[in-house]
Amino acid sequence: MEHVAQHSDPHYDQEASKMGMWLFIFTELLLFGGLFIVYAIYRFMNPEAFQMAGKELNITIGAINTIILLVSSMTIAMSTSSLQKKNKGLTVLLLEITIILAVIFLINKYFEWGVKFDHGIWPGSEHLLNDLGKGEILFFGLYFVMTGLHALHIVVGLVIIVVALNKIQKGTVNADRPSLLENAGLYWHLVDLIWIFLFPLFYLIH
């Protein structure tokens, strides 16, 4: 409404947007929480198959992706600080680095999934259904669902960061109104955090 737009400043409540973001993060945690429960139950029921199937995954790519996400979490946190210090150039640069790192993560993921497809492993593939046991079917089913949903969150996070970057360049997100960047940062940390759990659960536990 026109009226609200004119008086938008008194309606600006930084605490409220931060609280809203935290609540949204709770819902995301519970979304993945459901998947973690499913994972835990099936791992408990099929310990050996999960162990064998886990060896199929490439620890090196997983480790590289972990490092990439951790560094990107650092750069977006640094961009928040530099926005507070009113250093616009550095903020933009750090966000650009974050975006590049996120894209590299997705490219790695693409190749990682590609290798699985080459080996005939995808949900419902003939090789999976005919040659491998039920535990392996569940492991790879969950692997594709959970890393796929996580990758989707990376894409969403990317979009939010691009929007924030755009608004910082325009000046509508600035040291006095940093909510969008701060929330983008919170969301990105969440995406990072979920990966921190996915990586050991799928790649490392043998």
Binding site: L31, G34, Y42, P123, G124, L129, L138, V145
Partner: peptide, 28 residues
């Protein structure tokens, strides 16, 4: 969110046969 992810899993089960709820594929 819990029912959200559960419905997603059922949908993926329909489309891709991921197996999590299908007893024929090891699911429960």
């Amino acid at each position: 969110p819990v029912v959200g992810i559960t419905l997603v899993l059922v949908a993926l089960e329909r489309i891709f046969n991921i197996g999590v709820f299908d007893p024929a594929l090891g699911g429960d």
